[in-house]
Computed example of a mutant assay.
Amino acid sequence: MNRHSEIVTTGPVSIETCVEADGAAARHFYGRVLVLPEGRSTDHRMDWDLEEHQMVTHLVASAPRPAGTSLVEKHTGPVPRCGLLLDEQRFHEFAERLRAAGVRFDIEPHRRSPGEPGEQWAMFFRGPAGSALEFKESGHAHRNPAVHERAGAPPATPFNNRPALEDQTAPTTA
């Protein structure tokens, strides 16, 4: 089955960036483990199709270190991190593919806030050089559970620890 025939883009396209130290390890992880189609690449960067969003891995001399951590319910998650919201079926298929490949999770796939607004599945893991990745399921892949409860909030698909562009209010001038 053609992987792209399963993908429906319902919101704006984003660019996600991760830093990696080893091109061969990055190509194996993002291309073979995450099964992301590779786009244009050079000797210092690789572009990937992340569910029709652009993920760029920049190759640097040394592995990145997280800036810190933040509390995610009872778990500690690295920041910054990037990732994507998926529908529930894709989330579980993706989690199983990661488990089968032996990916070590910082936070195992689990249901967050059961029975509450914003209930979702979430998982945290890292790329080969330590880039933090987070994938979530919100029940509606095009809706960010962190903002969809707010009146009039626009749908948002990608996330990277920053508000979606449509979620930012532009300053007005008189």
Rank of each mutant, 00 (worst) to 15 (best):
T17D: 02
V19G: 01
A21E: 05
G23P: 01
A24P: 10
A24F: 12
A26T: 08
R27Q: 14
G31V: 12
L36C: 11
R40A: 05
R45S: 15
R45H: 15
D49E: 07
L59K: 09
S62R: 05
T69A: 01
S70R: 00
L71F: 03
K74M: 10
T76R: 11
T76Q: 15
T76K: 07
P78E: 03
L85F: 09
E88V: 15
E88Y: 05
Q89I: 12
H92D: 06
H92V: 00
H92G: 00
E93K: 10
E93W: 11
F94A: 03
F94L: 10
A95F: 06
A95Q: 00
L98T: 10
L98E: 06
R99V: 10
A100P: 02
A101D: 07
G102P: 01
R104D: 10
D106M: 10
D106W: 03
I107W: 06
I107T: 09
P109D: 06
H110K: 14
G115L: 07
P117K: 10
W121I: 07
M123C: 15
F124T: 03
F124G: 00
G127C: 11
G127I: 12
S131F: 02
L133S: 05
E134R: 06
F135I: 15
E137V: 01
G139C: 04
H142K: 13
N144C: 06
V147C: 01
H148T: 13
T157S: 12
P163R: 11
Q168V: 14
Q168C: 09
P171E: 09
P171D: 08
T172S: 13
T173I: 12
